[in-house]
């Protein structure tokens, strides 16, 4: 149980860090004495928020993939591409590296993020027996890599701004781009709002040391 003794949490001592400026404050103060942010030992509502955002993102993922994400007009020919058809198009053009990057950033990462976050939230909500360490490292990966999913949107927005030659060559974002952007945004938010400390409590409650 030396292990347990080491694992003394701040809240046990009535201390909690300010979420904004990370000042260690007394929980009973309720407000950070430095920045005035409300201090709470744990934000139990964050799980709900995260879930809600995640579910929204999951819903939006469907139109994001079904609807075309770009409208390319080349010599009068209008071409609408969904994310997947764009990738297959790149594969057809034998631009495999780009296709892989695009596939990773636009399909794999959002999917994995949602799945990962789902697992994470499930682990919190339903106390899944998953190693605390794995979860945390996975969470950080998701949080870090999630921002790269914006790559696709950057490409679209830059292309739309630069390629604008009317009927000859034109690129425009299609409805799916909004949906896709929301998916990325919502998953990022879902990861952000989640109070990761809850995980620790749960795991410690379970006394799971693995």
């Amino acid at each position: 149980m030396t292990d347990k003794a080491k694992q003394v949490q701040g809240k046990d001592n009535g201390l909690a860090p300010c979420k904004t400026c990370l000042k260690l404050c007394k929980i009973e103060d309720r407000q950070c004495q430095r920045c005035g942010t409300t201090i709470s030992a744990r934000d139990y509502t964050s799980v709900q928020k995260s879930w809600a955002l995640l579910i929204t993102a999951a819903i939006l993922l469907i139109p994001a993939n079904v609807y075309p994400i770009t409208i390319m007009t080349s010599q009068g020919t209008m071409r609408q591409d969904t994310i997947f058809s764009g990738i297959t198009h790149l594969v057809e053009l034998e631009l495999m590296p780009i296709a892989i990057i695009l596939f990773t950033a636009s399909i794999l990462v959002p999917m994995l993020k949602i799945v990962g976050l789902s697992i994470y939230l499930c682990a919190i909500s339903f106390r899944l027996p998953i190693s605390k360490k794995n979860l945390m490292s996975g969470f950080h990966i998701i949080e870090w890599i999630g921002r790269w999913s914006m790559l696709d949107l950057f490409v679209i927005s830059i292309t739309a701004a630069l390629v604008n030659m009317g009927q000859l060559l034109d690129a425009k974002p299609a409805p799916a781009a909004t949906a896709f952007a929301l998916v990325i945004l919502l998953t990022q938010l879902a990861a952000k709002v989640l109070d990761t400390r809850l995980l620790w409590d749960r795991l410690e409650l379970d006394n799971d040391t693995n």
Partner: peptide, 16 residues
């Protein structure tokens, strides 16, 4: 029981 945040997925769902 429910945070207002839950309106978001509902809206998304309805919209979808």
């Amino acid at each position: 029981l429910f945070s207002p945040i839950w309106l978001l997925p509902i809206i998304a769902l309805v919209l979808g």
